[in-house]
Design a protein around this nucleic acid. Structure first.
Lengths: 233, 233
DNA sequence: ACTTGATCCTCACGCGACGTGAGGCCGCAT
DNA sequence: ATGCGGCCTCACGTCGCGTGAGGATCAAGT
């Protein structure tokens, strides 16, 4: 098989096969008298092995070592850990970025200093969040938010409504307030899904970081207390 | 401010500040007669802006354009989309890698060709999965699996137990079979959490791709039918 | 004034996995 | 003999710096 043929069959480019040869990954076992590369069956199989391992995101050097040593289990497990780390970092970045983009939607024509402040705030909030919840929990919360579409987005409206009632001095047993409290409990349940640990962590985070919570548009302690005084049922 | 000072204050390296100047991102507005860089307040602010935007994962060129144009909303939204795409790709990779690592644990001293086959199988299974569930759903399932720890891992054991009863010809109304069916329903509920759409998609995937499902250790149609004949209650 | 240690300057190569030419040889068909 | 397509070997560019190399400058101590 010549290189162009092999490239066409594998979907690689000729340059890639040249590169793999330079790196010592796949060296064709023969050349024509004029110097053209000739790949035999074993070479072709080797190419497919490299393709498969490269699709797992392994660096070429590692692929070479791996095909020489055969220690697949250890190397792939280590690589999985590294991928997990990248995944956690990328999820955190996505959270920050999404927060900034969301805030920017409400801020027409922002100055660079405004954007700076937003980035700092949002990333501080997210860092705080990451201190109280494991990456798995954060991923789960994000996924539920992405699946459920519109549950988390209702908090600001609800908080604004509650604040209005507080400021107006409405009695906590008033039906309007009771309805708000029910809605509150419902949204809260969407968050913790009956898991007391999640709920406890949320409470701890809120009480220990009032500044970040309020920066994220969350409720302050006074509002929590007020809602807690609404009679149930 | 001199470069070393600024580098120390920002946590950057001197080389980084040099590099940013080469790229035209932050050019100190003055030099001493001997050529040393002097950063004034505006330069320092500019550096902090670049730092913040770089932490969002933007390429330096884009940061330059952004600080010149001020079109934060559009650029950051586009970047968010790109980050989402990378996230989806990385999650898919993680799924494949985890599947391969898991299988490798049961295969001591595998040959390269075995590993190749595993990679192909697992990635085909995951691709099939991705055809029936949105990236958000896949992320949610993965996150729940990571949070819940040990629910999905119980399927192989359960399937083996059911197959044993099928082969032994046990009557479907036998208490032992009823217990297995109850366990089956429980694990299934862990998957779809009462969402009929998730369950329907799972069913469609299973019936339309028997080869991939069996390669992933899933149940075949005969087992599904058999379990369905177990009386409830 | 002289030395010393810290800081500063400007090149310039290296990384990872190739893309993209540049300039020229090989092989087959007309 | 004359194409034309495929092949060959350099060799530079990508992205965001790290890491020296070799030399000038600065502030402080002697």
């Amino acid at each position: 098989m010549r290189v162009g043929e092999l490239a066409g069959a594998t979907g690689l480019t000729v340059r890639t096969l040249h590169h793999w040869e330079e790196r010592g990954l796949v060296v064709p076992s023969a050349r024509t008298p004029s110097g053209h590369r000739v790949y035999d069956d074993a070479d072709v199989r080797r190419v497919y092995q490299v393709v498969a391992l490269r699709e797992l995101g392994l660096p070429l050097d590692t692929i070479g070592d791996l095909l020489a040593s055969g220690a697949f289990g250890a190397v792939l497990a280590a690589h999985l850990e590294q991928v997990d780390a990248r995944l956690v970092a990328l999820q955190s970045l996505r959270g920050t970025l999404a927060g900034v983009v969301e805030r920017l939607r409400d801020t027409p024509d922002p100055a660079p200093s405004d954007v700076l402040r937003m980035i700092d705030e949002v990333s501080r909030v997210n860092d705080t969040f990451a201190q109280y919840f494991t990456p798995e929990q954060v991923a789960g919360l994000q996924a539920r938010r992405a699946e459920g579409e519109a549950t988390a987005a209702q908090w600001p409206e609800l908080i604004a409504a509650v604040r209005a009632e507080m400021d107006a001095g409405t009695d906590p047993s008033h039906p309007r307030v009771r309805a708000l409290a029910a809605r509150w409990a419902e949204l809260l349940a969407q968050f913790h899904r009956g898991d007391p640990e999640l709920r406890a962590r949320l409470d701890r985070m809120r009480t220990e970081n009032p500044a970040e919570v309020s920066a994220a548009g969350g409720p302050d302690q006074a509002m929590i207390d007020w809602i807690g005084r609404v009679p149930r049922g």
